[in-house]
């Protein structure tokens, strides 16, 4: 009997700790995403396929991220799955992952002095399955073709060969 109540306390304690740490980290992550998105607004990433006129060097850029959901949210998702309806706790996970992956792709493009990223594609996979059918974490890859204005391309090529 006492073993059972100890286990219950353990699970509830873990849920509370996971909730506190998880939501704090999510809040911080969102703040950093919004800040960096603002800074990278000048570099558009689109999923059009036709390049604008002009001389550009093309280069593949990508960004990936693996984010996991905390224990509390996984518990919530289990309840949601039982009663049906939208699982909001996973929606933020996927939203964060996609935005972070796109940001990392943009950062890579910025390093190469790109003016535009074309044909952006996302690739999502759940890599860390929790107990049962619940998803533990997802990996998102964002990739596209960076268009680098020719004069910049020459400069960055020189920089990489001299390194």
């Amino acid at each position: 009997m006492s073993g059972g109540s100890f286990q219950l306390i353990y699970v509830i304690g873990l849920l509370i700790v996971a909730y506190l740490i998880g939501s704090y980290r999510e809040k911080r992550h969102y703040q950093s995403i919004i800040k960096r998105e603002h800074a990278l607004n000048s570099l558009p990433a689109v999923n059009l396929k036709t390049a604008p006129k002009g001389h550009f060097q093309h280069e593949l850029v990508m960004g990936n991220v693996t984010i996991s959901v905390d224990y509390f949210k996984r518990f919530l998702a289990l309840l949601h799955a039982f009663f049906g309806g939208p699982i909001t706790s996973y929606e933020t996970l996927l939203d964060r992952s996609r935005r972070e992956a796109l940001l990392r792709m943009k950062e890579m493009a910025k390093e190469k002095h790109a003016a535009l990223v074309l044909n952006v594609k996302y690739e999502t996979v759940s890599i860390f399955k929790g107990s049962g059918k619940s998803i533990g974490s997802v990996e998102v890859l964002a990739y596209g073709t960076a268009l680098i204005p020719s004069s910049q391309a020459v400069a960055s090529n020189v920089a990489t060969t001299t390194q």
Binding site: H29, I67, S68, D70, Y71, E139, L141
Partner: peptide, 23 residues
Amino acid sequence: LSSIKNLFGGELTSYTELLQESR
């Protein structure tokens, strides 16, 4: 380590690196 991190959510850096390397 990742499975401990998995409890509290957040980025799993080792997996990000792993997938980047294999890509």
